[in-house]
Design a protein around this nucleic acid. Structure first.
Lengths: 204, 204
DNA sequence: TTGAATTGACTCGCGGGTAAGTTACCACGG
DNA sequence: CCGTGGTAACTTACCCGCGAGTCAATTCAA
């Protein structure tokens, strides 16, 4: 997995060192949040010095943005992949949840960093495009449900989309807080809960 | 509303000044969160100097705790009051939401400060007792629903309680982000959404 | 020798917190 | 009616630690 050293280079090849730093920084940002993470801490846990990180990523924001991009790509990619599977209604919700559990298995920090409230202002645009694509997908399913119930109020749709997004996040966050639960077990749990709420088996 | 000045005292009476600082600090803590709030900012917006705040509240944590207590008392008090009204099932949920909208009307910072993720460690105990009482109430209604559906898994109840708490929070937060919506209109919205999800009118 | 990789040892601003003084008001004695 | 001292409210100007960010070296492969 090690890249070839470039001429005139001591120590670790540039690409490898970069990857190594990202591997360490991601979980740290995820655990403590952007604001409460110190560069000295990242450097120490990576076994290198602080200036080296600045050499590679320029600033704390720069390092964070790289980690955030990885996280958002992973999360959003998985959600869009699930959407393409073609399931509808509750089945689609369950499929999306299941995919998320699988992709986050052993990488809970990805979810944490994607939902970090202390992220710097500079990432607002990045997070916006991500949120818009997410909301768009959520809105489809939610709109279907509301239309079926004869509700065509625009703000109702807006609020319900926010609620569904939070329900999704709530289930994922709960799972992240229970490391012993396998993705399979968690998906089964979601099926039971959906069944209890909606009063019928989801595959009906 | 002004307290009597005590003998040998210049300026504002102690109780009045304390209240004035709290009135300013609450919304600031709510808007920026504990971590991102600076004492100098609070002092400036209150039109006084920084040391005066320390004279009154001892520390940043001290000031924050006072604001947090006010917020938690308001929120939890309202929820327990709603619980005592004796409604059951979905009606109880709607009544609780309605009460929350009314008590937070014009005081959105109360909700923000009660849900601030950057609150200091020292308030963990305070927040725990609050959260436990909240969870206890939520667990009642959720447990009823799950038992009705034949689900008696302990972790299911745990997860579902977390989800319901987040749904509640999600609706309140959405409302806080839409200042033009009256409590009445928001309660009506909640009724429609509940109806759409559960497939029947809540008062049935 | 060259030059990229790497680091020890800084600077600097920000924000919590404080020491020491200043202001304004009141209660007295003359 | 006028000092004059006492006291509480209040402020200016500071300290100090922490963490982001930088610079002048140092190491080592080619």
């Amino acid at each position: 997995m090690t890249s070839v050293r470039r001429s005139g280079t001591k120590g670790v090849a540039r690409a490898d060192r970069e990857q190594q730093i990202l591997d360490v920084a991601g979980p740290i940002f995820g655990e403590h949040g952007f604001a409460a993470t110190s560069m000295a801490d990242v450097a120490q846990q990576a076994g290198i010095s602080k200036p080296l990180i600045y050499n590679y990523f320029g600033s704390k924001e720069g390092l964070h943005e790289r980690c955030l991009r990885l996280a958002l790509d992973l999360v959003l990619g998985e959600i869009e992949r699930s959407a393409d599977l073609g399931a509808v209604g509750l089945q689609r919700a369950l499929v999306t949840l299941d995919g998320m559990f699988r992709v986050l298995d052993g990488r809970a920090w990805v979810w944490a960093i994607a939902n970090d409230a202390t992220a710097p202002e500079g990432t607002a645009a990045l997070r916006d495009t991500y949120q818009q694509r997410l909301d768009g997908l959520a809105r489809e399913g939610v709109g279907e449900l509301l239309t079926l119930a004869g509700d065509d109020d625009a703000l109702d749709l807006d609020a319900m989309t926010a609620v569904w997004s939070d329900v999704f996040a709530s289930l994922v966050t709960w799972w992240c807080a229970h490391p012993g639960v396998t993705p399979d077990a968690m998906s089964a749990r979601c099926e039971r809960l959906f069944g209890a709420v909606f009063g019928f088996s989801p595959d009906a």
